[in-house]
């Protein structure tokens, strides 16, 4: 359950060592090669895609826009909402930093190390992807909640938010970095060594720069996922206003109060962040493609 869920397969696929011509040299102006059957298929697919994704997301933008800038300001100026935004962004930022470091370490260990149980570790990394988010919350409560065998009681605190976000975002950096590390050619490192580079230099000047785009992609996905997380926080964080309430919960509260306009305003901000992440990823991928 790897690149499929994290949407970075392009980053993860370096070019072959041969001098394969980059695609962009062949890019021609958009042509239309649809057959009649394919055209019909595309039409049906587009209708479904519009009904399912495009129209509903437009509705969010429209509902958000219907109140004008004033509504944005009033929603965001609300202390409780602002607290939720800062909490979410702050915790998502912290968790993303943790993922950058630990995720890279885990990927390194999975690719370069050999030890008993490594295969199991590899499978466990995917558990957060596969586990329903509400179950993730329950799972974390069992170790970090009131009946913790460790004696740690983090439920309903800021730590619980970080914990839940760390859980659900664990695989992103690992699964974007791992394939790139696997494909790093040993002879590149050997070349550096024969030119006199020490281990540390090779790590700093050869390996890390090669991994940087993948790390960035994983971090972006991890951040996007963290700021939109909802399910795993429901049981764990207690959704206490000003303390553990995140943006998603805020949106849900607006919906439950029938205040769809405010919900949409806040939701459109989240959509915007999602869009920024997608664009950023696209840019990273193009730069990597340029490297070949």
């Amino acid at each position: 359950m790897t690149s499929a869920l994290i949407g970075a397969s392009e980053v993860a696929r370096p070019a072959s060592p041969e001098g394969r011509r980059p695609r962009r040299f062949r890019r021609s102006t958009p042509r239309n090669t649809l057959t009649r059957g394919a055209g019909l298929g595309l039409g049906i697919a587009m209708i479904w895609f519009s009904l399912l994704v495009l129209i509903p997301l437009s509705a969010v933008i429209a509902a958000a826009g219907s109140g004008g800038w004033d509504r944005y300001f009033s929603v965001l100026r609300n202390d409780q909402t602002w607290a939720a935004v800062t909490l979410t962004v702050g915790q998502a930022g912290i968790v993303t930093l943790v993922n950058i470091v630990i995720g890279t370490v885990i990927a390194w260990v999975l690719v370069r190390d050999q030890f008993w149980g490594k295969r199991l570790l590899d499978v466990i990394i995917d558990v957060p992807f596969a586990l329903p988010t509400i179950v993730a919350g329950l799972v974390l409560l069992s170790l970090y909640g009131p009946n913790s065998p460790l004696g740690i009681h983090w439920a309903f605190t800021e730590n619980a938010v970080a914990l839940a976000l760390a859980f659900v975002t664990l695989p992103f950096v690992v699964r974007t970095v791992q394939p790139v590390l696997e494909e790093l050619e040993a002879d590149v490192e050997e070349a550096a060594a024969s030119l006199g580079a020490s281990r540390g230099t090779i790590l700093r000047r050869i390996i890390l720069p090669s991994l940087a785009p993948a790390i960035a992609a994983g971090a972006a996905l991890s951040f996007a996922r963290a700021i939109s997380e909802y399910g795993s926080l429901v049981l764990l964080s207690g959704n206490r206003p000003f303390e553990t309430e995140v943006v998603s919960v805020r949106v849900l509260t607006f919906i439950e109060n029938g205040n769809n306009g405010s919900a949409a305003a806040l939701a459109s901000v989240m959509l915007f962040v999602a869009l920024v992440v997608i664009v950023a990823l696209d840019i990273v991928q193009r730069r990597v493609a340029r490297r070949g």
Partner: peptide
């Protein structure tokens, strides 16, 4: 896009339409 949209936003979007 659906990979990076919050489930709550998905729910809201469908609700609105």
């Amino acid at each position: 896009l659906p990979l990076s949209v919050s489930p709550v936003v998905v729910g809201l979007a469908l609700l609105l339409v």
